[in-house]
Simulated scan of single mutants.
Amino acid sequence: MAVAEQVQAPTRVLIVGGSGANYATSAAAIEAELGIPVFNLGLDGPVGLNVILPSILEQVRPGDIVLLIPEDLILLDDDGLLDRSVPFGIAIGQPGLGDVPPKQLAENLLLVGTPTLRGLTKSTIDLIEKGEMTGYYSDPFTDRGDPTVTKVRHGKWWKWQIKEPISDHAIERITKFREQVEAKGATLVLSLPWVYGSTEQESIANMRKIAAELEKIAPVIAYDPETFNLKSDSSLFADTHHHLLPDSRKIRARELVEGLEPFVKKDRTQAK
């Protein structure tokens, strides 16, 4: 956000979502193709839709293209608040961001700094082996927000299942976000993430419903209308069902470029 704020341009692309956005594309590759600044502002799915969206809204400027790539975790949630919603708001100095209920905020504030057994164990091992404590997101990012470290999966893969369609809350929240983005003179564009997942009837049917509802809100780009981006090749993926290996991120970036080009051309035409 701090880096993006320093870049002045008639049009920028801001990539928004959870880690399924951040670890699944390349802002640098998209920028090289489009010729405009692109920032990867993907966060973490468990931060929740209610917190992810307002956390980047203040950075949106007239002419920007906001590309929201929401993974199923945040689309199926009923209230937009997940287990990292409150801690994230506290961490960035905005406790209660996302309209967190006062009781939930108070309970989480009381637990700040209270370590879990798992956390203590990991921190102890980190201190012994690395000489410092690290976290999942401790690795540095580029000046465009892209990851610099690729994590790989050591356990056995299984195919992710989409067991529910999009929630009513997610529809309402993304609709409101589109209105907020447009009020700032920017454009909202949506996309479905790549997922190593089941292509059985239930998953496909739910993804079809998700795509249909999202298309009612804003344009949905870069997805296969038959598979809805549910991939059957685990070799494309890194450590999770939503994170891609570097070569896969470049392929995904190319897809997104093709979907974004009409909106970039439209903005350039309007600017003239």
Score class of each variant (00 low, 15 high):
G93H: 03
P140S: 09
D99R: 15
L192H: 04
A21H: 06
R84M: 14
F228M: 03
V47S: 03
K159G: 05
F39S: 09
Q201S: 14
E172S: 08
R178W: 10
A21M: 07
E261T: 15
V3M: 04
L109H: 00
A222G: 03
T150R: 01
A211P: 04
D79K: 13
E255F: 11
G259M: 11
L49P: 13
D44L: 13
L190W: 07
G113Q: 10
E179D: 08
I204E: 12
P95I: 08
L34W: 00
P101N: 03
E129D: 09
D99Q: 15
E202H: 09
T199W: 01
Q161Y: 02
A205E: 12
A32S: 05
L236M: 13
I15H: 01
S138I: 09
G185Q: 01
A205D: 15
G96T: 07
G45L: 05
V47N: 08
L67A: 05
G42F: 10
L34F: 02
Y196D: 03
R12Y: 07
T269I: 12
P115E: 12
A9L: 08
W160P: 01
L97W: 08
I174Y: 02
S235N: 04
W194I: 02
I125T: 10
L97G: 06
V16C: 07
P10E: 10
I69Q: 15
Q201V: 14
N22A: 15
G135L: 02
I221Q: 07
N40T: 04
N229F: 08
G131S: 00
L75A: 11
I15L: 12
